[in-house]
Design a protein around this nucleic acid. Sequence first.
RNA 1: GCCCCUGUAGUCUAGCCAGGUGAGGACACCGCCCUUUCAAGGCGGCAGCACGGGUUCAAGUCCCGUCGGGGGCGCCA
Length: 478
Amino acid sequence: MGMIRVRFAPSPTGYLHVGGARTALFNWLFARKEGGKFILRIEDTDLERSSRQMSIQILKALRWLGLDWDEGPFFQSKRLKIYTGIAERLLKEGKAYHCYCTKEEIEERKNKAESEGKAWKYDRRCLNLTKQEKERFEKEGRPKAVRFIVPEGRTEFRDLVLKDIRVKNEEIEDFVLIKSDGYPTYHLSVVVDDHLMKISHVIRGADHIANTPKQIMLYKALGWSPPQFAHLPLILGADRKKLSKRHGETSLLSFKKKGYLSLAMFNFLAQLSWSPGEEKEFYEVKELVEKFSLEKVRHSNPVFDFEKLSWLNSKMISSLPVEKIWDELLPFFEKEGIKDEIGRRGEWSKRMISLVKERARNLEDLASIAKRYVRSDFEYRQDAVKKFWKKDSRERILKLKEAFAKTEPFTADETEKALRDLADKMGVKAGELIHPLRVALIGERVSPGIFEVLEILGKEEVLSRIRRAVKNWGQVLH
RNA sequence: GCCCCUGUAGUCUAGCCAGGUGAGGACACCGCCCUUUCAAGGCGGCAGCACGGGUUCAAGUCCCGUCGGGGGCGCCA
């Protein structure tokens, strides 16, 4: 067997959504596993709907996911001559013909057939044109398309994911190869490019199953041998309909924006319809590559579970070392306006993040939590204030401040000792000090262990934050 | 309507090809423990082979049918 070569071939008519990303991912995984090449091709032959902007977005999204390509991106819009040349050849060989029917004419005949309860298929009107009719159309300057002559018989192929698929050719109409605007259709360009680019395996969404026989006929007509096909189940929304904007944001980059780790996305997508077969939830990219196989791809359509993705994301954020998430975190610091402070405080910032990241659902969360540690001008959360800043707790916090002023070194252990001693002395439970203190330090009712928080903030900052809290006590209380 | 694909808990899945351990794991949900809070973590619970026939000593696993879900039926890709 020759070189393994696969491709991802999006059309730049919209953002790269999670379904497309999953297709790209499986192609990439397969290429890396088999030591083959991953080729990127932009299918922009629909000039109405394609845009350069979208092409750029798609490349950006792929890079974010970590899918690097070995060749391309190739743009089909720059290869038009190749496709029209192949169409000419089919015309010459009597395997295709010009069609002068307009959209309206076809629509009319189709409606008529359907109202008579007949299944519609292009009626080959233009295949049977007389010489005179043809000349008349030419003289009228009617635009013409090129249609492929679907041969008789049946077409079958072995799908690497599914199984043998077989259709009768009579189910298929003479499909268009070249549109009347001179541009090739998908069927032509995909076959020509996959052949010329020596693609060995076509891995794509199951929505292409019905297209495959058409494409195989084309390969045969051209005397080329078709690649292997593998069709991936379609990702569904919670209502079991094909995932779309109706189910919320589904563009890949929107997940980046919302603070998802690319590795979380990678794992989640890789494990939709496929499983490494082990009882663990997340893997290094390398492991996924090693274990990947097309045969193990499931046949049924998976539902995209936002909850599970979110869980995976938070679990990764809390368990990965700071260094591994740092780069992806920077844009979120910037959005919170704390990028400079974070940078200035170097190692301290990393320690602080590793302390607070366990509680973050996503990177956006994490940056906003971090902000309270970096800057002391936060707002006190009202529900926290109401619950914990009682009248007598103000006095206790003042006492605590005095005790902290004398605490040396200002570590988690020492501050804990100081706080518990004081609580004992005052005859109150430690919680009576801890809760108001938490609100004073970060203005929230939740945080990591309070003594860790004290240590990371440092004595000076703690005393200053308590001072500010005490000053505000009366005002925010009622 | 026609054609094609598909069916293990609410969801993602292991097991199916080479029939035979109380159908395993995870998300979500519920309870308990831990605890200064919230998460996390630990322990436990709820819940599944779509249905009906066959083949077989034995069927989630093989065969057929029914039903359910999805996709396609464009001069979109």
